[in-house]
Amino acid sequence: MRGAMECMVQDLSVARGGVPLLQGVGFSLVPGEALVLRAPNGAGKTTLLRCLAGLQPPLSGQVNLPEEGVAYASHADGIKTQLSVRENLRFWASVHGVADIGEALERFDLVGLQTRLAGHLSAGQKRRLGLARLLVTGRPLWLLDEPTVSLDTSAVALFGDVVRSHLAGGGMAIIATHIDLGLPEARVLELGAFKARADTMDTFDEAFL
């Protein structure tokens, strides 16, 4: 059981638009652990997360994640502006076969807003709604891409609490972020060390060079 829940990434290389960005990325994660990815802009954080989410094939390397266990949160929240907060959340809950959205609304302080149209929310409120979606996926591994963008300090603290209780419940998280989330126990992975060298092109598309 425990084995199936682990995350193992070995010697992973990813590319965007045919240009290798990262190579030799490796880490492992057991339930209850979080990993913070740090790197300058354009280094390949988003590409790495999309690859882990299974949206994009890796150039090479191995990715072993829990089967159907990944919840991905990108820059875009996937919120429909013509639907209310509750309708948005209920949709994702039923797609993932989860019945209850009350807890998610409560944890992100959205109860008072639940009948409001998502189009009328502020940027920070939208972001909270986007993050609340994670709670209704019922999935153990969260892949978060700059989750705190446009959140104020209290909302960041709120989010930190949610992540912590997710970890306490045996969940895992991989977070690309620049700011301190108040998760001292999280390990930090500096992606700068894995920057792809120009000569990797030769093995990648060798014949074209």
């Binding site: 638009g17 045919g18 240009v19 290798p20 792809a196 120009a198 092109m201 598309d205 074209f208 060079l209």
Partner: peptide
């Protein structure tokens, strides 16, 4: 087409370096 593709690959490599 192969040469055009090679050129694009070279340009991409230049951008990287």
């Amino acid at each position: 087409e192969i040469r055009a593709r090679r050129m694009r690959a070279l340009l991409a490599r230049e951008r990287m370096a």
